[in-house]
């Protein structure tokens, strides 16, 4: 197990290094000079050059790469060109919205998907299965911004249970914050839950066909018992893979939903940064997202090993 951990950590560090290099190089070749963008069309070349010096843009590329990496290692992501504030503060502020939103959506998705997937697999080919499969088909095909607007109409405008948009911050209490995130989380969770339920159902059905399920039945387990005690754990591997991918997506992919609900999340930050050529913010946010994805992959790998004893010994 220790070797498995060590190898995973090593691959995590290497992936991060490779990703940082790629991000840096891509940003290098992207057209648009932040200095001239900040100063506007009428700025003289001398002023622009002075600002480039001040921003450190005139140094050689390797030196800038190293100072960027070194800065990040110390938690210093540099200054935003447009907002003139540290990027770390900017990102931290946005993560306060995006991270809880992603976790909230993921939790809701799992809460719906597990019972639905189990039910559909247990009642395969019967009414409950057909109903779940139909609902998931709908969940996958409905655009989530449309569903979000529907939620706003019903729960915010008609019944006034949840706010229609905006985020009050966490200072006003956890309740108000969660309330603001509830509708967006539901909108985000719907397609994810549908996908997850389908993956769980097909993984369970595949596992149900295995020889050891027949062995378990020959021992006297009921169908439900074999599903819970033997099939579920074996079916968790593909489910975990999907869960990991969904979390990574939810963290930054919520941009449309953030716009519908006026949430100051990571997705909107990166969108604004790109339109304003705030390359340092783009670089840093992408790097943080890459880190998050790699970290989640690492955690999913760990979970695999906890579930499947065969992985613990190998590699």
């Amino acid at each position: 197990m220790a070797r498995y951990l060590f190898r995973r950590m090593l691959s995590l560090a290497l992936s991060l290094l490779a990703a940082s290099l790629v991000i840096f190089l891509v940003i290098e070749v992207v057209p648009g000079d932040p200095a001239s963008y900040m100063l506007g069309l009428n700025a003289s070349p001398e002023t622009v050059d002075a600002l480039r010096d001040q921003l450190g843009l005139n140094a050689a590329a390797p030196a800038r790469y190293l100072s960027w990496i070194w800065g990040m290692a110390q938690g210093d992501f540099g200054l935003s060109y447009t907002y003139k504030v540290p990027v770390s503060g900017l990102v931290a502020q946005r993560l306060e919205v995006s991270l809880p939103l992603a976790l909230y959506a993921l939790g809701l998705s799992a809460l719906v998907a597990f019972p639905a997937g189990l039910l559909a697999a247990a009642r395969r080919g019967r009414l409950a299965d057909t109903a779940v499969m139909g609902a998931t088909q709908l969940g996958i095909s409905l655009p989530n911004f449309w569903f979000a607007m529907l939620l706003v109409l019903v729960f915010a405008l008609h019944w006034r249970i949840f706010p229609a948009g905006g985020f009050p911050g966490w200072d006003g209490g956890i309740g108000a914050g969660l309330a603001a995130l509830t509708l967006p989380a539901i909108a985000l969770a719907l397609p994810q839950a549908a996908i997850l339920a389908r993956v769980l159902r097909s993984a369970l059905i595949e596992t149900e066909g295995q020889d050891y399920i027949r062995t378990a039945r020959a021992k006297g387990l009921t169908r439900t018992q074999t599903m819970i005690r033997h099939a579920l754990r074996n079916a968790m591997i593909p489910v975990l893979t999907i869960l990991g991918m969904q979390f990574s997506f939810l963290l930054a992919g919520a941009i449309i939903i953030e716009n519908v609900f006026y949430l100051p999340g990571l997705g909107r930050l990166i969108f604004q940064a790109i339109t304003q050529r705030d390359l340092i913010v783009v670089e840093s946010v992408v790097m943080i997202l890459v880190f998050a994805v790699i970290l989640v992959t690492f955690l999913v790998d760990l979970a695999y090993a906890l579930i499947d004893p065969r992985l613990r010994r190998r590699a």
């Binding site: 050891y212 020959a218 009921t222 754990r233 004893p309």
Partner: peptide, 22 residues
């Protein structure tokens, strides 16, 4: 289900896959 495993036991052909690997 009460009978299987208690009054009648059964073993199968494929020992490599007949046990739950987890």
């Amino acid at each position: 289900t009460r009978l299987r495993g208690r009054d009648i036991g059964m073993i199968f052909q494929e020992p490599m896959t007949a046990l739950n690997p987890m």
